[in-house]
Amino acid sequence: MIEVRDLTKRYGNRVAIQGVTFTVARGEIVGLLGPNGAGKSTTMRILSGFLPATYGTVRVAGYDVARESLEVRRRIGYMPENNPLYPEMRVVEYLRFRARLKGLSGRRARERVEVVLEQCGLTEVRRRLIGQLSRGYRQRVGLADALVHEPDLIILDEPTIGLDPHQIRSVRELIKGLAGRHTVLLSTHILPEAEMICHRMLILWDGRVVAAGTPAELEQRWSADPQVMVEVSAPAAELEAFWSGRPEVASWEMAPAEEGWWRCWLRPAGAQDLRPLVYGWARERGWTLRELTRRRYTLEDIYVRVTARREEEEAEEEEV
C-alpha cells in the first residue's frame, strides 16, 4: 500500500527527514514513533500530498505522490494533529459537506455519512454543533471525516493527543477496528498506545528510521541479554555460592521475598534462555520454585535503548 524510498526533506540548511525508506502492507496498522522534531509529521504530510519532498519517491496504492497527486488523495483519509473543524456547523452537516468535497454524490454522501456516524459513535450527537462537543467527540468527528470517502489509507497524526483516559481508550478501540478494511499509518509519542494498536513500528530519530519491525522483532533484536527472575526457597548462602559458580550466569542479584523465599535476578552470559537451566538446577538440588519468568522488554524499554545508542553514535561523530 505504501512504498517510501530514500525520502528526504530539507528546509534551507535544515534537514527534517533524510533517507527514510519503508513499506506498509495493505490492512496493516503501522506506528511512526519518535520525539517531537523526529520527522513524523513531515513524513505524513509528504505522504498525504500536502508537502513536496526534496527528493526520494513515495507511492500509495501504486500511484506516485508527486506525479499523480489527485489519484493519491482520492485514496487517503488524513487527520492532522490539530484537527481543523468548523465549530459553527452541526456534525451531520459538516460530514455531508466534507463528503461532497471529496467527490461523493448526494445520495452516496448521505449513505456514507450515516455509516461513519454509526462507526465512530456519533449518532447521538449528530445534530449538535461541533463547537459544543468535547475534545473526544471532536476527534471522532475528525476520524469520521477521514473515513467518509472509504479511503484505502488512513493517516492519523497524534490521534489521541489531549484526550482523557476514557476518551483515549474509546478512540484507540475505534482505530484498532479499522485494521484489515483500511491501512492505517499513525504517529504518536505515547509508546504504550502504539504497543496496543500497531502491528509494526518505525522509530524515527533526527529525521531517520533507526529501528523497524513488529514488537516481537524489536524485542528480539534489542533484548540480547534477557534477564530471568526466579523466586526460590533455599538457603541464601547456598544460592549465592551457586549463582557465583555458574558460567552460564553473567551476573545476579538477590533480595528476600518473604520468610524462607528469595527473589533472584539472573542475567545470562550469552543470549540463551536461562529458564530451562534454572528449572533443572532446582530439581537437582531440591529447591522449591514458586516463580520463574523471563523479563519482557516493553516498547518503552526498546525505544530508550535505540535512542540512547543513537545519541552515543552522534556524540562520537561530533568528537571525531
Rank of each mutant, 00 (worst) to 15 (best):
E68Y: 14
F242K: 05
A212T: 01
A237N: 11
V228Q: 07
D64F: 04
A146W: 08
E68K: 15
A53V: 04
Q18E: 12
E111K: 02
E319S: 00
W281A: 11
R283Y: 13
S170V: 07
Q139K: 03
Y55N: 14
A99Q: 15
Y86C: 08
A211F: 10
R169M: 04
A216S: 02
R263I: 11
G245K: 07
L133P: 01
G34V: 05
I175D: 04
E300I: 01
T23E: 14
A66F: 15
I154P: 01
E173S: 07
T42H: 09
E158M: 03
L202W: 05
L85T: 06
A144I: 03
E219M: 07
E3W: 06
N13M: 13
L274H: 09
G49Y: 05
R309V: 00
A237Q: 13
R73E: 02
W261A: 10
I203K: 04
R26N: 12
L101I: 10
T288L: 13
S251E: 05
T23P: 11
L266A: 11
V20H: 00
S223F: 07
M201I: 12
P268L: 14
C120D: 05
T288Y: 11
L32Q: 00
W222D: 06
W261P: 11
V304N: 00
V24K: 07
S244F: 05
E118N: 15
L204R: 12
T57W: 03
I190S: 01
I203L: 04
P215G: 01
C120G: 02
P84S: 05
P159K: 07
L147W: 01
V113G: 11
Y297K: 05
L32H: 02
G286T: 13
V320R: 12
V115C: 00
E291R: 15
P151Y: 08
R107W: 08
A25G: 14
P256D: 10
R221C: 07
E259W: 09
C198G: 11
G280P: 00
L239R: 10
H189D: 02
E195W: 08
E312S: 05
G121H: 09
A66S: 15
K9L: 07
R138V: 09
A212L: 01
L299I: 07
R181E: 06
A211E: 09
P87C: 10
R126K: 04
L191M: 03
R5I: 05
C264G: 06
A236Q: 15
V113N: 10
T42C: 11
A38Q: 10
G131E: 14
T307M: 13
V306W: 06
D152G: 01
D152N: 02
R107N: 06
I130M: 10
E150R: 04
A25P: 09
S251T: 05
L266D: 08
S251F: 02
E258W: 08
S244N: 06
A194E: 00
V20T: 00
W261Q: 09
N13S: 15
M229V: 03
A269W: 11
A236I: 14
V171Y: 03
N83W: 12
G180L: 05
L204E: 12
V92N: 09
A271P: 03
V60R: 00
R75V: 00
R126Q: 03
A224H: 13
R100G: 08
M254L: 15
I76T: 09
N36R: 12
R59A: 14
L202K: 02
A315Y: 12
R67D: 10
G207A: 14
Y11R: 14
T123M: 15
R128S: 13
